[in-house]
């Protein structure tokens, strides 16, 4: 076999084994999108009920008063929580959310507030460190299937930072999952909580006999941090669904690319094979003619 043919065949084989991998990753990502979506749905009732409980507290006490709801008059530092993935191979997923995060930090700085960076996901840690940002704290190893436990760890750490006035505000940059085809990098403020966010309905008249144990203020002390953790959890879930949606798309493109390449290379291989055969025939014919000439004369 000729050198060129061998080379082309080797490339085809290698592309095909890559294709098998990308195809498998595409299928895995597709099944994970579905699971992540179901988890987003499953998390909704709790958040809804938490809000309802807070609405009841507001109804009984007139208005909610709590440090987590208070705007600080002259904020100096704002926590910026950036949610990225642990692995790449997800198209522009990480690039988009990191761009959004840098944009957010720019806006924070414009107000004269210093951003303090918190990161979830290895990719974000790598990128931000490379760009020379200092990272206050990071959490990794959960981006594809975030559990509530992880959200609790992150949420509690940030609430503590807020309580100790290491940060005066908290923002999060993450990726909103719209559909398997549309995901959008976005940012939200998590702290302080806007009161109208937790009390959506106009509080009606207080109920005549409402039982609180312990008193409403102490209950609120538990409800509000829980609410923040739930928001972190929801954002992690949305990000995980988005990550998988982007990965599926990227892997689908890679698989199709491999198919196209195989097609082109197969033609090249066929041509090379044909050239070799032609060459051989020519050699045989040439030799026969030479032999004929030699014996005929």
């Amino acid at each position: 076999m000729g050198a060129k043919l061998r080379l082309v065949r080797r490339r085809i084989r290698s592309i095909q084994s890559t294709k098998k991998i990308t195809k498998a990753m595409e299928l895995i990502a597709a099944s994970r999108i579905l699971k992540a979506q179901q988890r987003v749905e499953a998390a909704r009732p709790y958040a809804e009920l938490l809000t309802r409980a807070m609405e009841d507290v507001a109804r009984q006490t007139g208005a909610l008063v709590h440090p987590l709801l208070e705007e600080r008059p002259r904020p100096e530092r704002a926590g910026v929580l950036v949610m990225t993935s642990d692995r790449g191979l997800a198209g522009a997923y990480n690039a988009n959310v990191l761009k959004r995060a840098e944009d957010l930090m720019g806006r924070v700085r414009e107000r004269g507030v210093e951003p303090i960076i918190y990161v979830s996901g290895r990719k974000g840690v790598g990128y931000l460190r490379f760009r020379g940002y200092s990272i206050e704290q990071s959490w990794t190893g959960h981006s594809e299937v975030p559990t509530y436990e992880v959200a609790e760890r992150i949420g509690r750490a940030l609430i503590e930072a807020f309580g100790e006035r290491r940060i005066d505000e908290l923002y999060a940059a993450y990726t909103d999952f719209r559909s398997a085809f549309t995901t959008r990098a976005t940012d939200r403020r998590f702290l302080p909580i806007a009161p109208e966010e937790v009390v959506r309905r106009e509080p009606g008249l207080p109920y005549p006999e409402y039982i609180f144990e312990p008193e409403p203020a102490a209950i609120l002390d538990e409800l509000l941090p829980q609410y923040v953790v739930t928001k972190v959890y929801a954002a992690l879930l949305e990000s995980a669904a988005s990550e998988n949606a982007n990965r599926r798309r990227a892997m689908k493109a890679a698989t199709e690319n491999a198919e196209d390449l195989t097609k082109v290379l197969t033609r090249v291989a066929n041509q090379a094979r044909q050239a070799e055969i032609t060459q051989e025939i020519m050699e045989v014919v040439g030799a026969a003619e030479a032999l004929g000439k030699a014996s005929g004369s």
Binding site: A53, D56, V57, Y207, E209, Y210, I211, F212, E213, P214, P216, A218, I219, E222
Partner: peptide
């Protein structure tokens, strides 16, 4: 089991929010 003791809830119980 609430933080301040056991509670039993029957239909038409007064509104309640406990830890």
């Amino acid at each position: 089991r609430g933080v301040e003791g056991e509670v039993g809830i029957l239909p038409q119980h007064a509104p309640l929010l406990i830890r």
